[in-house]
């Protein structure tokens, strides 16, 4: 499945330094293994409304260092499975950033936009052009590296690796 390059969704806005322990609590990391089950625990310790009310294509807008802390991949998977279309932050915890991209969940750095986007407003993102449109105006963000597009186009790191494994066996 190819990832969409134009995203449109409703904003869930959060603050700075949101760590992966509150995105996906540690007590579930060895007991909840199915991706589809993970969504119900998404942001449990940050915003209990989120898992109940999140809709497909919703967009998380966060302050600096979103996803800092533990490397747990479930923090990215639970958001992807919740239907989140993209995360825009002032900056990301680096492992969570990679986990998001490897789950084909766009993680975008656009500090100027974060400051002016309002909670619950509808915003639009053009991934290929690196453009973000919200009520307060248009913003641009740095394009994602080439290899990340290859992972997106394959539908995530799993299918990307499968494709490479298959081609190496040919």
């Amino acid at each position: 499945m190819k990832e969409k390059s134009i995203l449109r969704g409703r904003v869930w806005k959060y603050g700075d330094d949101v760590n992966t322990d509150v995105i996906f609590p540690g007590k579930y990391t060895y007991t909840v293994n199915e991706p589809s089950e993970m969504a119900q625990y998404a942001l449990e310790d940050l915003d209990p409304r989120f898992a109940k009310e999140v809709k497909p294509d919703d967009i998380i807008v966060a302050g600096k260092n979103w996803g800092c802390g533990s490397s747990r991949e479930q923090a990215a998977i639970c958001l992807k499975e919740s239907g989140v279309g993209a995360i825009i932050a002032k900056s990301f915890g680096r492992i969570h950033y990679r986990n998001c991209l490897n789950a084909a969940l766009p993680a975008l750095i656009c500090p100027e936009a974060v400051d002016v986007i309002e909670d619950k407003e509808i915003i639009e993102i053009d991934l290929k052009r690196g453009e973000l449109r919200c009520a307060a105006g248009s913003f641009s963000f740095p394009p994602l590296p080439e290899i990340v597009w290859e992972i997106f186009d394959a539908g995530g790191l799993i299918p990307y690796t499968r494709k490479r494994l298959e081609s190496s066996r040919d």
């Binding site: 490397s71 991949e73 990215a76 492992i95 990679r98 986990n99 490897n102 789950a103 590296p145 290899i147 995530g156 790191l157 799993i158 990307y160 690796t161 490479r164 494994l165 190496s168």
Partner: peptide, 20 residues
């Protein structure tokens, strides 16, 4: 360098990983 579980699986399969 800390990485995710999926990335580790990819290393087990390919022996390499992208890093910035």
């Amino acid at each position: 360098v800390g990485i995710g579980r999926g990335e580790m699986a990819s290393i087990w399969a390919l022996g390499t990983l992208w890093l910035r």
